[in-house]
Design a protein around this nucleic acid. Sequence first.
DNA 1: CTGAAAGCGCTTACAG
DNA 2: CTGAAAGCGCTTACAG
Lengths: 353, 353
Amino acid sequence: MIVQKFGINPVRLLDVARAAKVSRSTASNVFSNPERVGPKLRQRVEAAAKAMGYAGPDPKGRILRAGKINVLGVLSPLQMGVADTLRNPVFAQFLQGVAQTCDEAGVSLLIVPDLPGKNGIASALVDGFIFGRIEHLDQLDAANRRRLPYAVVDFDAGPTINSVSVDAHSGAKAAALHLLELGHRRFGIMSFLRDSGSAKLFPVGRARDPTMAGIQVDQKKLEGYADALAEYDLNIDDVAVVQAGAWDPDAAGIMLDAAPEATAILSMSVMQAIAIIHEARRRGIKVPDELAVVGFNDIPEAALCQPPLTTVDSLTREKGRAAAELVLAGASGQQISLSSHLIIRGSTAPPRS
Amino acid sequence: MIVQKFGINPVRLLDVARAAKVSRSTASNVFSNPERVGPKLRQRVEAAAKAMGYAGPDPKGRILRAGKINVLGVLSPLQMGVADTLRNPVFAQFLQGVAQTCDEAGVSLLIVPDLPGKNGIASALVDGFIFGRIEHLDQLDAANRRRLPYAVVDFDAGPTINSVSVDAHSGAKAAALHLLELGHRRFGIMSFLRDSGSAKLFPVGRARDPTMAGIQVDQKKLEGYADALAEYDLNIDDVAVVQAGAWDPDAAGIMLDAAPEATAILSMSVMQAIAIIHEARRRGIKVPDELAVVGFNDIPEAALCQPPLTTVDSLTREKGRAAAELVLAGASGQQISLSSHLIIRGSTAPPRS
DNA sequence: CTGAAAGCGCTTACAG
DNA sequence: CTGAAAGCGCTTACAG
């Protein structure tokens, strides 16, 4: 029968060594460098260990010597816990990419929450980290102090910082051009609210807040939309923008209300694009015939949607892979740039009228 | 400008202490117990630290003293890497549950791959672990030796081991009864192949291999199906069984070929149930009118499917939550049992004929 | 409020 | 092949 106990009975290497009447060094070698120990002593130590219920060196002690921990850390986006991080399908995909590299390197993956009080970066037992999302340079301070390799994603932190970015500008531009080429001229834009606030409407005509596109990568998407519109002599200032969180249940409704005349919606978030398709169906608006929808980022749900979502593939998984490779290789100051491309599926068609 | 360097310049607490002309203890207290240090000394130490680029105690050193690591480990199923683990939607949901508890406890989540050579359990820096999937009692040996709390899921490891299980028997029975009540009498069963082998067909009439249901929890599902069938004087030995991995692209086709007369398919895997719906559509078989399909486990894709999948909700997220709570509470020998229930959606209807 | 000392559990040159 | 010694970086009673 197996008896599960712990906390009690802290057998240490030293105890085993004493019981087996060998030195600590020899006992250590039995577990870590068995070939250096003669068979007789080895068996004696192993027997003693078994008798005492000692299962090998405690990693806590070993780590201090070894230095290497064999763990890659991923830092959750600002204020996000582990659960939020895993729940976000785009981030989950990013993690899958990171995980692929972990598997190749034989390393475990630690998801570190960004908790209000604690400084996860300062205390995480990792060999390096990846910032899942970063919004300001000073978020890197703690990482710089750890003197561990790290990489950021979709953020330009200058030439000294490892980074992996997707060309969001050209991806967003391609999405908008696709709609323009189909003949659409009246749009609504859904931007990403990265904190947990409620949806914000930026109506046409009023002073536009520069934060309406959220973080750096989203601003590039907005510029991509604007540039595409400009090619067709359209001004993005004439397009209503709704900024909302990925899971905001009201966002799709607000968007459709804000741009009732729109024949096409550009969404920076794939989740919101899917939500718009659902909300349109609920309202009896046919997608794509009466309303075309384009998202940004490709996740499995996008292809399963009815109709399947036309969206920008921003190589999320590859970003994760590449970021992890940089960190595990101990790179410093490498910049990797990936190019996104549009996947045309069923949610876009020429406007009816 | 931020300069990212590491490996070099290993400033230790001792160096800072020397530079500030204080003892190690005092320097340590500045970072870990600031209230115990007078303001003058504190500032002197902080200044020295800043000047030398010391950011606070290295967690590697601290851990040895503190004992607690603030990390909960999840062990990947047999032979699975981190990427496989994250990619499996059921397991991803389980991890979300674990993560919820981690967030409540302010703990990070470590995903430990089950790599051929290494013993992840022996070397993981965690305060306890959860076995994502277990098939034999001896997989617990290494965990028992670590003397750290742990829990298993959907596996009865006896009264001394923490476990969280769902009543798979009654869930599966409910699924089968639902079909029987609708009038179905001819079935096909899709069981789960837990290793990476190719699909296996267990045709009717031949000697049935007891392993055709895979691991313990799957055997309970099979019994649940059998008991339901028996209530309608049907024998499970007259039902063709196909056993396949969650992602096997051929499995759905093999199942449909193996039971061409079936009006309903019972699948132990939600992914395979969805695959059967897709394969049926490809073949021009209408679901649910010409073929009813029931899965086991509920994931977001199941509801998004066309038609939405009728499936057993086995409370995967709750299992993760509960398992994590047991471990973090340092429980020992607790058994938690959850009851599954059927979610009836669009993939089931009475048989046509 | 401050510091000298012991120790967390292990490993690794090095000497024999 | 084996062992005495030093040390990984830090913290924590304890004495002053």
